[in-house]
Amino acid sequence: MPSLKSLSQKKELLSGGHRLCPGCGASIIVRQVLSAVESPVVVCCSTGCLEVATTIYPFTAWKIPWIHSAFENAASTLSGVETAYRALKKKGKIKEEIKFIAFGGDGGTYDIGIQALSGVMERGHNLLYICYDNEAYMNTGIQRSSATPRGAATTTSPVGKAIPIGKERERKDMVEIMVAHNSPYVAQASPAYYNDLIKKVQKALSIEGPTFINIISPCPRGWRYDPSQSIQIAKLAVTTGFWPLYEVENGKYKITYRSRKRVPLIEWFKSQGRFRHLLKEENKKIVEELQRRVDEKERILLARAGEKI
């Protein structure tokens, strides 16, 4: 694992001056991911905040080969790139070792892009798919996705008199879905734990086959908090147990970080405006229920990893 100092001296592959919001988790994640890459890399993005804000023609923030085609097909587009690479390498037209990384938001990954991603996982392309999960469609203005957690308010799961809790359904467990595809390496990470994140990216890229990392991506606009707090929020997601850091290598679970002191989930809700309504007395039961769900999920995860509670 390289030191923070050596990482900071690495050439930035995503230049500054792009139009992502201050405090946006996506650009922090991309910079951490790219700092982990030691060979040439080609990136594919799905349509979303990251794509529109980094490549406004005639400008691009990407100093590496980059492609975007549509919202739901980052995985399949990159599978074409990776296949072309294999074909051209076989014919001796390309000599270099190249790595392939797709970045999709939760909309492009959990929802509209899940079919293309599922196909890529089953076909076994040699690429890493990263979901920067900000838990809603942020690019179009904070609409709920299947990654939006229960109890979060979005513009399409608003809080109202009839529905006082915002989103009523649990979020989809994308990591488990990827594990079920027999991917050789699936992990979950947070930009607050950059060393853990970078290690996971390096591991994923060193493994032959389709790999997947789900990374929590705090969004000041959508989650309603001060932009200076993004990393704190990304940390709180882990210490409250909402976003456990773990990996699944060839089906074997491993918890990669365990907070010494478990912070109650209510602190997670207090930190963001999208959960403000949960702090009301009438929603107390929901908060308790959500805490129980997090505890239950942790128990399941620890059991899978063979660790003590």
Binding site: V42, C44, I67, S69, A70, E72, N73, S76, T77, L78, S79, G80, V81, E82, T83, A84, Y85, A87, L88, K93, Q115, A116, G119
Partner: peptide, 15 residues
Amino acid sequence: HSAMSACVGASASGA
């Protein structure tokens, strides 16, 4: 949808 997407990726890559 993925057929054409993969063709886009491949063709852009010089294949």
